[in-house]
């Protein structure tokens, strides 16, 4: 007699799996990657390759030889971490900085907690913040390396727009005066190409293209990026309306720094973000607020990495107390 399969319902499964999702994230990162490679040439390629290979390699070594468990590098999650970390570093970073960051990201932030799905903090951001604190000079060196593709384009920028503003304000200039000094700070420039910043921050448009892809493929829900951007816009808008000479306008705040990269790719990391739509809104608002507080009142010019990490630590609490909208609002008594 034929032996049939027997299992509880349902008997079919959607084509989705973890690997497919991770590949989708990489595809969504592709436009930004291409723009970076165009601008930063070999150094961008080098950073991305070192990041992806090191992350996958470290995960493999730890699973195979240290934990002696099943090796799960084929799910591509380590590769995504590596690429994201590369996109979060300055383009002139040396390869060994990337290597060190990747080891910390996977070895410390991911595997010590038990691997995929168990970590509290976004591994790529832990790697970045580790490097930022340990190598502050290298991590704020925004010199632009040579690129074969970009021959002839002026590449004089040595600081990020946010740092320029922060510095200028500290010297007693108004926002308008600073803006006039640096023609690179026009919105048009920032939307398409913004040299001065991390590898992945070059083009806001390329990042938004990635967001559209992720939304269309239903990899992420819009809640987190939308609430982060809205909160930043509202918060900075209030200050800007009060005093436009001391505070930058909302659009400037959204387009500069790592806000787009962070809200689209870093804050939406499944493992470290809330499970419910309501939780995602709280998380997004929290990230937006902390980012703006650090930008305006902190000593760092940019704060989204810290904001996301701080909110990561609140996620378990959000998951515990913020429940989804239940189908039945009332319970039948008796």
């Amino acid at each position: 007699m034929r032996k049939l399969l027997v299992s509880p319902a349902p008997h079919i499964h959607s084509p989705e799996n973890t690997r497919r999702i991770m590949i989708d994230v990489l595809i969504a990162l592709a436009p930004s990657l291409l723009v970076s490679i165009y601008f930063f040439g070999f150094s961008a390629i080098q950073l991305v390759l070192v990041g992806a290979v090191t992350c996958v390699g470290v995960e493999y070594l730890i699973q195979k030889y240290l934990l002696k468990t099943e090796v799960t590098i084929q799910d591509m999650s380590a590769a995504v971490t590596g690429v994201l970390l590369a996109l979060n570093l300055p383009p002139s970073s040396p390869w060994w900085l990337m290597l060190l960051g990747s080891i910390v990201a996977i070895g410390v932030a991911k595997m010590t907690f038990g691997g995929l799905g168990q970590n509290i903090f976004n591994p790529a951001l832990v790697g970045r913040v580790f490097l930022l604190i340990s190598f502050p000079v290298l991590m704020t060196d925004w010199n632009i390396p040579d690129s074969w593709f970009r021959a002839g384009v002026d590449a004089s920028t040595g600081a990020t727009p946010l740092a320029l503003i922060k510095e200028g304000l500290a010297q007693g200039h108004t926002v308008d005066q600073i803006m006039a000094l640096y023609p690179d700070l026009s919105y048009f420039q920032m939307l398409f190409i913004k040299v001065g910043g991390s590898v992945g921050e070059v083009s806001a448009l390329a990042l938004l293209l990635g967001l559209v892809y992720l939304l269309v493929r239903r990899v992420i829900r819009p809640h987190i990026p939308v609430t982060i951007l809205l909160t930043i816009a509202v918060f900075s808008g209030i200050f800007w309306l009060i005093d436009p000479t001391q505070y930058t306008d909302p659009l400037f705040n959204i387009l500069t720094g790592g806000v787009l990269l962070g809200s689209i790719f870093m804050a939406t990391d499944y493992v470290t973000s809330p499970m419910t739509a309501r939780g995602m809104v709280i998380y997004g608002v929290g990230i937006g607020l902390i980012t703006m507080l650090i930008r305006m009142f902190g000593s760092y010019p940019e704060g989204i990495s810290f904001a996301i990490l701080i909110m990561n630590s609140v996620v378990p609490l959000i998951n515990k107390y913020i429940k989804p909208a239940r189908f039945a609002k009332e319970v039948k008594n008796g």
Binding site: T18, D75, F327
Partner: peptide, 26 residues
């Protein structure tokens, strides 16, 4: 091919199960 359950992997906390639950459960 249509019905055999695939290899289980780690929960990645994607929240898709919460999103698709018609009763609003987790």
């Amino acid at each position: 091919e249509q019905t055999l359950r695939k290899l289980q992997t780690q929960c990645i906390r994607c929240g898709k199960c919460v999103q698709v639950c018609p009763m609003g459960l987790e």
